[in-house]
Design a protein around this nucleic acid. Structure first.
Length: 181
DNA sequence: AGACGGATTGCCT
DNA sequence: GGCAATCCGTCTA
């Protein structure tokens, strides 16, 4: 699957998500190559925006390119990038990165885990990058992929509704995936 | 006002 | 592979 020349945040989440594989996410001094994402839309029963706007999910209906950060299981933070037409309630969940810069800082935040596990899984990714509720609605910095990566689509992880949609996109060769294909 | 359950992770068996 | 940890938006009464 080929990547586009620019990242168009107004694209629907399920269209843009595979194009983000190989792009670089930057948070302060830390960065990593995106290798696993999932798409969520307002028509999608598994999406936080499915039942309309609420105080928690309001960022999903705000400007594109911002973070929607939420607490999962009362323990972990998960980071999405808002996308799609304005107010459309779409987002892309960041699930895994290959660490590039600021690795020492990530290790300090995560403890002694192998580098390829630092940002493997949405909760781990947020912890390694220092993403928490304070970054909700802040602008997400994404840089274009330099090289084309292989991208495959799979079922999303950990959801019960619309579980057969193949809206999880991965670089199958990455060692940083939260789960193998 | 009270109950339910989840886009998870890590430790225990 | 099983399960506890731990918070809050949403649903029900």
């Amino acid at each position: 699957m080929a990547q586009p020349a620019t990242i168009d945040l107004s694209l629907n989440a399920a269209v843009l998500a595979p194009a983000l594989i190989g792009a670089v996410l930057r948070v302060g001094p830390c960065s990593g190559r995106i290798v696993e994402v999932e798409a969520y839309t307002e028509e999608d029963p598994a999406s936080h925006s499915f039942r309309g706007r609420t105080p928690r999910n309001e960022p999903l209906f705000g400007p594109q390119g911002r973070f929607y950060v939420y607490r999962s299981y009362g323990v972990h933070w998960c980071a999405n990038i808002v996308t799609g037409p304005p107010g459309s309630g779409q987002a892309i969940l960041l699930r895994a990165l290959e660490p590039l810069e600021g690795i020492n800082m990530m290790i300090a935040r995560r403890g002694g885990v192998p580098v390829h596990r630092l940002c493997s899984g949405p909760g781990n990714l947020a912890r390694a990058l220092g993403i928490d509720g304070a970054m909700n609605r802040s602008e997400a910095l994404i840089e274009m992929p330099e090289a084309t990566r292989r991208v495959i689509a799979t079922r999303r992880v950990g959801i019960s509704k619309a579980a057969d949609l193949a809206w999880r996109f991965i670089d199958p060769e990455s060692p940083a995936l939260s789960r193998r294909p």
